[in-house]
Amino acid sequence: MEQILANGLYLGAQYALIALGLTLIFSLMNVLNFAHGQMYVFGGFVTYTVVAQFGLPFVVGLLLSGAILAVIGALIEKFLFRPVIRKSKREESTMLLAAGVAFFLDAVILLAFGEKQRGIPKIVDGVMNLNFRLIMPYDRIMVAVLAVAAIIGFILYMQYSKPGRAMRALAQDRVAAQLMGVDVDRYSMLGFAFGAMLAGVVGGLLVAITGVNLGMGGPTSIKAFMMIMIGGAGVISGAIAGGFILGMMESVGLSVLAAYGNITYLVIFASLLIFLAIRPQGLMGKPWG
């Protein structure tokens, strides 16, 4: 049982970080970022290239993943989403654009990094073993701790820094924030860059454990959507809750339902549908986003 809980926490920390980026972009721009999973895979490949090919330390790879993805995110916002949002009659048009970006990133990843599964050597060796009740490799613990640290850093940044406050104001009410002198364009760009950066960092973290491959993008996006549906779209606390809940459900499901075959996700999806029928806006979301 302790093992299941520990696995759930480990998964949840990563998931929450992915969901945070997605929910940040959603709350600022009202854009459902289909390309989030692809950004995450891209980040993983950047870390892989830096660590495995150039032989630089893991931390450098992680930082570079974040930085490169932040630049990509900022460029995508400035040159793609902003003009389309301005010109389009219906705001859903951004979904087509987001899907286009997802395809584009898939193509770039395929051309730049190939379609093979990539991973890097273990960063920390050894396994923590508490009386065989709880077995956890040290590198997984490290990744979980790093993810939690990133989440705490993100919350502190959003809560106490000036750009963080501006972004929260934008998420609450765009017009009011603009009237108070918030530079809407600038902080939308910053928010998008920040969201993409989080995706890149998680990708970088994961490449150290399981590795990444091209096909992971789409399923990751779907998982991220599920997390923000559980927690409520556009709410930071909701994204964190959603991430940990999904991680826990996956971990419990994989061990409890293993006897019935591969139905964990079927059960999770079904319960999600029922949950949403009762509480459409998720745990902490505002009604109708």
Partner: peptide, 19 residues
């Protein structure tokens, strides 16, 4: 699920495909 709107509905239908 038709009580949901906007991206919520979009996401549920996406999940439905996977289900």
């Amino acid at each position: 699920i038709l009580r949901l709107r906007g991206v919520y509905f979009a996401m549920v239908t996406l999940v439905l495909t996977e289900v």
